[in-house]
Write a protein that binds this DNA or RNA. Sequence first.
DNA 1: ATTAACACGGATGATATCTATCCGCAATGC
DNA 2: GCATTGCGGATAGATATCATCCGTGTTAAT
Lengths: 163, 163
Amino acid sequence: MRISEGVEWAVHLCGVLGVVRDGYSLTAGRLAEFHDLPSDYLAKHLQALSRAGILTANRGVSGGYRLAKPARSITLLDITLAIEGSEPAFRCTEIRRQGPCAATPAACKHICAIAQAFMLAETQWRKALASVTVADIIRTAASESFDRARRQAFQDWLNNAVK
Amino acid sequence: MRISEGVEWAVHLCGVLGVVRDGYSLTAGRLAEFHDLPSDYLAKHLQALSRAGILTANRGVSGGYRLAKPARSITLLDITLAIEGSEPAFRCTEIRRQGPCAATPAACKHICAIAQAFMLAETQWRKALASVTVADIIRTAASESFDRARRQAFQDWLNNAVK
DNA sequence: ATTAACACGGATGATATCTATCCGCAATGC
DNA sequence: GCATTGCGGATAGATATCATCCGTGTTAAT
Ligand code: FES
Ligand code: FES
């Protein structure tokens, strides 16, 4: 069980887009450059975020990506589901219906206890992710891992990259 | 992100082993038969459960598997970690250290905000799974999907299969 | 109108993980 | 000895993830 690293990429880059001034955007190439990621593959993830309504894409020369809504309205859950898909991690394959003591279809009206327990756990997981927004990430990262020099370097890069 | 179906198998079969009388056991072949699973592959999972201290294995003619501890002391989390391994689903690959505005090693002393949020979510997930035991599963399943006929069929099969 | 820059999506391949099977070995009880 | 069973390594196929390439359509500047 592992979460695709595209999720990490997406969260980081939503964080970057979250500090771009309104009306400006960044291209896929620039976003890839920022964390030295494979830009073609990253583009796939950005498309997924766009389809999910998290980013807005603009084509053409001077096109690029921007957040589709305020950073405080985008949760880590939104991003995770956009990249990974929304199917639950645990899938009940109904093996209780197989074998010599198979449960009758009538006995399988409601979800089995095992699937229920795993679903509940997954709900807790989702709740936790839904309670953290991109704005939270930006705030924490800014105060914890941006010293004066890095902040300056970041601003310089951004001013040059933004369109 | 998906949980291996071996986890489902393991939970079901721990449930079966949970109602075997003390001192008796079931072979891998019998356990596979119970839900019509590929026995060689299932054996791999049973070995993992054995290594994790959830099952006790006995070799030889009259050997087989039994629970290593009472059903009420085995949680769904125990089983899941035994099958899937205990590494977290989200893995921070430290991409903040890559690219033109890379964070300095000094700024990366503590875990980044993103990884922290995902770890917290995973902790919630684990807590939920740790709060459900095999005994709980047995109790719920018995009351919800075992009518009189199936209970009888189950007992008959068990009496014949147990050693 | 032409052109350059860009996002989009399909096609394809590489790599890793999951699923499944097989076989030799070790342990156990008869 | 001998049959039965679990253990672990080796292997192979199926599926998912990671990555790249290229043709298309869109946009804005010239
Ligand atoms: S029947 Fe196996 S988890 Fe539902
Ligand atoms: S640096 Fe990316 S999640 Fe920690």
